Lab assay of single mutants.
Amino acid sequence: GPREVTMKKGDILTLLNSTNKDWWKVEVNDRQGFVPAAYVKKLDSGTGKELVLALYDYQ
């Protein structure tokens, strides 16, 4: 199956793709996968990378 990404509340993840309104593709610890968009919030990183903050645990 697809590689699952797990996250804990407060984690910072790299946002790869947010074109789908329900599932965003993120990368964390060299793993890529989809997380519910409602579970993360975009951060203003000030760099080229888009980052998101995990609002809830997800696994």
Rank of each mutant, 00 (worst) to 15 (best):
S18G: 09
V40D: 02
K9Q: 08
W24Q: 01
L15R: 00
T47V: 13
P2Y: 14
T6G: 08
V5K: 03
A37K: 05
K25R: 09
F34L: 07
E50P: 12
R3S: 14
Y58E: 00
L55R: 03
D57W: 03
D57Q: 04
P2T: 13
D22R: 13
W23P: 00
W24V: 06
S18R: 08
Y58S: 01
L55A: 02
Q32A: 11
Q32P: 09
G10C: 04
G48V: 08
L53A: 05
D44T: 15
V5C: 06
K9Y: 04
W24M: 03
N17I: 07
D11S: 05
T6F: 15
A38R: 13
V5N: 02
K8N: 07
T47K: 10
T47S: 14
P2Q: 13
A38T: 11
D11H: 04
T47M: 12
L13T: 01
D30W: 05
V26C: 03
L13S: 01
R31V: 15
P36E: 02
V52Y: 09
K42W: 06
G46Q: 13
Q32V: 15
G48L: 08
W23Y: 07
G10Y: 04
L53G: 02
G46I: 13
F34S: 03
W23Q: 02
A54R: 00
G1F: 13
M7N: 01
S18L: 04
D22C: 14
V52R: 00
K41V: 15
Q59I: 13
G46S: 13
D44C: 14
V40W: 02
K25A: 08
A54H: 00
Y39G: 04
T47C: 12
G48M: 10
D30L: 07
W24L: 04
V26N: 00
L15M: 02
V52W: 05
V52E: 00
N17M: 07
Q32T: 13
L53V: 15
G1Y: 12
Q32H: 10
D57V: 04
E4K: 13
A38F: 07
F34P: 02
W23K: 02
N17T: 06
L55S: 02
V35Y: 01
A54S: 04
K42M: 09
L55V: 06
N17R: 04
G10W: 04
T19M: 09
G33L: 15
K42R: 11
V52I: 05
K21G: 08
T47A: 12
V26W: 02
N20I: 05
D44L: 09
S45I: 11
E50V: 13
R31C: 10
M7Y: 04
P2C: 15
L51S: 09
Q59L: 09
K21T: 09
Y56V: 12
V52K: 00
E27V: 09
K21R: 11
